[in-house]
Design a protein around this nucleic acid. Structure first.
Length: 909
DNA sequence: TACGGAACGTA
DNA sequence: CGTACGTTCCGTAT
């Protein structure tokens, strides 16, 4: 069999991967839903994604040394010249597929994978030629093609990878596999195909002859030639059919023979895999918005390449090896220049620590310091520089760094730019703002190392060699410095500089202090609450078990469905992915209909277990200082709101009496007099009034009357005093629903009224408050045109789905567009207010301090004797936030209500 | 062990 | 068939 020389013993044979580009792209196109794969601008990318994904898998799994992709050129080939109907049954190329082949070719270009085409020939002919020559040269060949004609090329050293499901699952067609599947070997596969026909090529076979008969004949007569020559000896109906179609079979065989001696510009030896043009590849994958795929691709590079590329990216970075005491001079040489900073450590507000720091300038010079063994002189220089307001710094996530440094007694002042905040303002819908990701996206630079957990906190691996870790930190600091210039431009282009510099950056400092301060907890009381809720949980569970005669996990929706719908045979609730919902609304509805006691106990159990869980979580979060230190996240909510985590103090119960018990545990701390809460009343409706300019709504607020009664009186045409409670609550639901894009149907559901009644209510509402309707439609229209919504301070939210062809996606985006300016403007205002309150506390020399923000509410801990002053400044500053709006003050007043008490519950209202 | 879904707390 | 979040638990996939 082996009639050629075996490869030299040690050397691995070359492995050539050949891909039929068009056929695989086409397969990918139909395997992946086009509506799921598109860029934010609507460019379909499903074929590109499938193709590149398949390519990535092949490169990883097969590790080819040589690669090429062949494409067809147009539809006319020597085959269509011989037989006009060849492939004539193909549907027109779908519009979303057009253009994707060109994109694939661009990707291949950046990967330096040769693309071959040949006038009048098909991609398969090119592959056949290359494969045959490579086989003769002793290479191992893999052919990836969705065209079965390629099976004829299979040998001991040539394997066809044929897609069986999408493009992710490829069958390895070896000689044995072909034989097993078709009953003939690869060389005779085209004989079989000629008899059976190939519908995808529009080549008809012999009627009544399938692969079994065809294989039988080929084996019996030893090849197609002999079958045709002996056609008259073939018995039966099939034989007759054969004799009627001799010409077609011969034609089929001529057409399905692949050409193996084309003249090509490149031979197998010229196809050696080369290094990718990484920046260009990054750029195009970026353009395609392929984030995970990019990670997969680049994760394939072996360590050596990885290291080399990181070195290349950081080649220009010079990490100074300073002797003890030389830091001061290094910093002095750069006095007044903006430097990038990277702090390694833990930024947890309750337990901060920093152990490493790196500083980089804009000329590729950096230093890295181990804070655990820093020389005293350098420590002093560093502390002075960090605390110097005139030493401008840029950091990625300054609040975390600020906490960490504080853990080592270091202040941090003079932060004039934050790359994380800047990226958030530019792309508020991103899930995360890892420095490494931003570096790739904005700088086309791979930072390497840090394995993704590089969010600036806790990412330091102590086991690593110190100098190596120092270099990583320096690379990050340099990336921050370089990103600063790029993002500063991006922020400026979007008109967000004011928001960054005058709002988010200074707010970060306020938030840091709020987190560090924390809020005092009465832990003994909280523990007694826990016991009480726990008792309720046990009782409710026991009673529920008694009713159904067995114990189930009441926290498992799956088991509950069994009990409710199978065991107890209750009517089915609303369908969800995993069956039927068991949420509180559905259970309450079921109880109303069945009066079944199990439901009562189940609901009581739900409530109690929830409360117990909340209490337990809070208890776990109490720090040694007896306070809870939440983290306010400033780059999470796409609308501009803050969020609170570890623990979340923005969702502490308030609606039920049992829930409010929990708020009694949040108390004034030692040495302080009381807590004060101040909240905006109906801030979102006020913003709606301002933004819409609706005279009626504006007048409602100026009149000082109860909003919902006022609006109700206009809608129902009765005096304000005669608006019934039911009318008022309908209006209230309606008003709030408007800001969320509520539909008439949704309103009817919420109010348990007929959809027609809800529609009529909405019509009446808009009749009286037409400015609101006009505003809501215009806000969506404008966002569709510009691509984004904007708040009163210019904060943007980009909503590309507003132009989606997919109705579902489009309507979701429309509701986001309605809500974002309102929710976001409210967020802007309270942020302005927080800065004002904080500044005023300082200015008046007060010791009272901000503790919490809950979207429209501030909680302040008041020092002895400062109560009146604090209350006054809260009212003033929160109301004054409306004056900071560009283009003058809001055209409605901002009402603030204030409460005072020793606990959050008492201070609430 | 990691992840998505369901449920539910807040504004 | 109403926006924005975070946390917990369950069940399944890994």
């Amino acid at each position: 069999m082996a009639d050629r020389l075996a490869p030299v013993s040690d050397a691995q044979p070359a492995r050539l991967l050949l891909i039929d580009g068009h056929s695989m792209a086409y397969r990918a196109f139909f395997a992946l839903p086009v509506d799921k794969f598109a860029t934010s601008s609507g460019q379909p990318t499903n074929a590109v994604f499938g193709f590149v994904s398949m390519l990535a898998n092949l490169l990883r799994d097969e590790a080819p040394t040589h690669v090429a992709v062949a494409f067809d050129l147009g539809r006319t080939t020597f085959r269509t010249e011989e037989y006009e109907a060849y492939k004539g049954n193909r549907d027109a190329t779908p519009a979303p597929f057009k253009g994707q082949v060109d994109v694939i070719r661009r990707v291949l270009e950046t990967m330096h994978i040769p693309v071959l085409t040949k006038e009048r020939f098909e991609a398969d002919d090119i592959l056949a030629t290359l494969s045959t020559r490579a086989d003769a040269q002793g290479m191992q060949v893999l052919i990836c093609s969705g065209d079965r004609d390629s099976f004829q090329l299979v040998t001991e050293d040539v394997t066809v990878l044929y897609p069986v499901k999408g493009v992710s699952e490829l069958a390895r067609m070896t000689p044995a596999a072909v034989e097993a599947k078709y009953g003939v070997g690869p060389a005779r596969y085209p004989d079989l195909a000629a008899l059976v026909g190939e519908s995808s090529d529009n080549l008809p076979g012999i009627p009544g002859v399938g692969p079994k008969t065809a294989a039988k004949w080929i084996v019996q007569f030893d090849g197609l030639e002999n079958v045709l020559a002996s056609a008259d000896q073939v018995p039966g109906k099939a034989g007759e059919s054969l004799r009627d179609n001799l010409e077609q079979v011969a034609l089929n065989r001529r057409l399905n023979a692949l050409i193996t001696d084309l003249e090509l510009p490149l031979g197998p030896e010229d196809l050696e895999a080369r290094a990718w043009d990484r920046p260009a590849l990054h750029a195009i994958l970026d353009e395609l918005e392929f984030r995970t795929l990019r990670d997969r691709l680049f994760a394939m590079l072996d360590d050596e390449e990885q290291a080399a590329s990181v070195d290349a990216a950081a080649a220009k970075l010079d990490v100074a090896q300073l002797g003890d005491g030389e830091l001061g001079e290094w910093l002095a040489q750069r006095a007044g220049r903006l430097l990038g900073l990277d702090v390694r450590g833990s930024g947890a507000p309750a337990a901060p620590d920093a152990w490493g720091i790196a500083i980089a300038d804009d000329e590729g010079q950096a230093v890295a310091l181990d804070l655990q063994q820093i020389a005293p002189a350098d420590d002093a220089s560093l502390a002075a520089w960090l605390a110097d307001a005139d030493a401008p710094k840029s950091i990625h996530g300054a609040k975390v760094a600020w906490h960490a440094l504080a853990g080592r007694g270091l202040a941090l002042v003079g932060v004039v730019f934050d790359t994380e905040l800047a990226a958030y303002l530019c792309q508020p819908d991103r899930r995360a703002y890892d420095l490494a990701d931003l570096a790739i996206g904005y700088l086309r630079r791979e930072l390497g190392g840090d394995d993704g957990s590089s969010d600036g906190q806790g990412a330091l691996d102590l086991e690593l060699d110190g100098s190596d870790e120092g270099r990583r930190a320096a690379v990050r600091a340099a990336a921050v410095r370089d990103l600063t210039d790029v993002l500063d431009g991006e922020v400026g282009d979007r008109g967000l500089s004011h928001l960054l510099t005058d709002l988010e950056l200074p707010l970060q400092d306020v938030l840091g202090r709020m987190e560090r301060t924390g809020i005092a907890i009465d832990a003994d009381y909280l523990s007694s609450l826990e016991r009480s809720f726990d008792a309720t949980v046990r009782e409710a569970a026991a009673e529920a078990y008694a009713v159904i005669g067995r114990e189930v996990n009441l926290g498992s929706p799956k088991q509950l469905q069994e009990v409710l719908f199978d065991q107890l045979g209750m009517p089915k609730t609303k369908k969800i992915k995993t069956g039927y919902t068991t949420d509180a609304a559905a259970l309450t509805d079921l109880f109303g209909r069945t009066q079944h006691p199990f439901l009562e106990h189940l609901l009581a159990h739900r409530d109690a277990i929830r409360l117990r869980q909340t209490v337990e979580g809070l208890l776990r979060s109490v720090a040694p200082d007896g306070r809870i230190h939440t983290t306010f996240q400033q780059t999470i909510a796409a609308t501009g709101r803050l969020s609170s985590a570890d623990p979340n103090l923005q969702n502490i119960p308030i609606r039920t009496e049992a829930g409010r018990q929990i708020r009694r545990a949040f108390v004034v701390g030692d040495g302080y007099e009381t807590l004060v809460t101040a909240d905006y009343s109906q801030i979102e409706m006020r913003i709606m009034a301002h933004l819409s300019g609706d005279e009626g709504l504006i007048e409602a607020f100026r009149s000082g009357e109860d909003l919902h009664s006022y609006v109700g009186s206009r809608v129902f045409g009765v005096p304000t005093t005669e608006v019934s409670a039911a009318q008022r609550s309908k209006i209230k639901a309606m008003s709030y629903g408007l800001a969320y894009g509520l539909s008439a149907y949704g309103l009817s559901q919420q109010l348990s009224i007929a959809p027609a009644e809800a529609s009529a209510l909405m019509a009446d509402y808009f009749e009286r408050f037409g400015g609101v309707r006009d505003y809501l439609t215009s806000v969506v229209d404008e966002a569709r045109t510009t691509g984004y919504t904007a708040t009163i301070l210019g904060r943007r939210r980009y909503l590309p789905d507003l132009t989606s062809d997919n109705r579902q996606r489009r309507e979701v985006a429309e509701r986001m567009a309605l809500n974002a300016p309102i929710q976001g403007s409210a967020a802007d205002l309270i942020k302005v207010a927080m800065l004002g309150v904080d500044a005023e506390l300082t200015k008046q020399g007060l010791a009272s301090r901000l503790l919490l923000q809950v979207h429209d509410e501030l909680v302040v801990e008041v020092a002895t004797g400062e109560r009146d002053a604090v209350e006054a400044l809260l009212r003033t500053q929160m109301a004054a936030a409306g004056d900071a709006v560009p283009g003058g003050p809001l055209n409605v007043p901002l009402d603030v209500s204030v409460g005072v008490g020793a606990s959050w519950h008492e201070a609430g209202h």
